[in-house]
């Protein structure tokens, strides 16, 4: 979805390193997309806690999230992310949520929910010829 791809996203980065200073992954001794921004190869775009702190502190307004997404689409996903993806494509939910959900809700005094019809998930997320959002 990004216009111009990775190069244009990286254009304004001055490699000041503020993003890496605030990154929880880096503080835990691992290497996130912020290491990639500083020109290092030893990192994983998937090692991220989604806290958005890096992007918030970036003085240049670099869209670090978009860069991470671009890199993720190039790199092999972790098993858990792939499993979530598969479940969303098949059922419309990231976790196994079936008809039994309403029994659980009833125990807690919650109203029954209507799940997304599978047919709708298929329509929403299927690949088709012509204009569509790809990835």
């Amino acid at each position: 979805m990004t216009v111009g791809g990775l190069d244009s996203l990286l254009e304004d980065c001055t490699q000041c390193g503020l993003c890496r200073e605030v990154c929880i992954v880096e503080r835990l001794g691992a290497h996130s997309i912020t290491s990639f921004l500083l020109g290092e190869d030893n990192y994983s775009s998937w090692l991220c806690s989604s806290c958005w702190r890096c992007q918030e502190v970036c003085p240049q307004g670099v869209d670090i999230h978009a860069i991470m997404v671009e890199k993720r689409r190039e790199e092999d996903p972790p098993v858990a992310h792939e499993a979530n993806l598969r479940r969303v494509l098949e059922s419309g939910y990231a976790l196994p949520i079936g008809k039994g959900i309403n029994e659980l809700r009833a125990i807690h005094g919650l109203d029954a929910v209507q799940l997304v019809p599978e047919k709708w998930v298929e329509i929403l997320l299927r690949a088709q010829a012509g204009q569509e959002l790809g990835g």
Binding site: V69, L85, V88, L89, L125, G134, G135
Partner: peptide, 10 residues
């Protein structure tokens, strides 16, 4: 839609 974003604009 969050889990899809890392894979596709869908």
């Amino acid at each position: 839609g969050a889990p899809l974003e890392s894979f596709t604009d869908k």
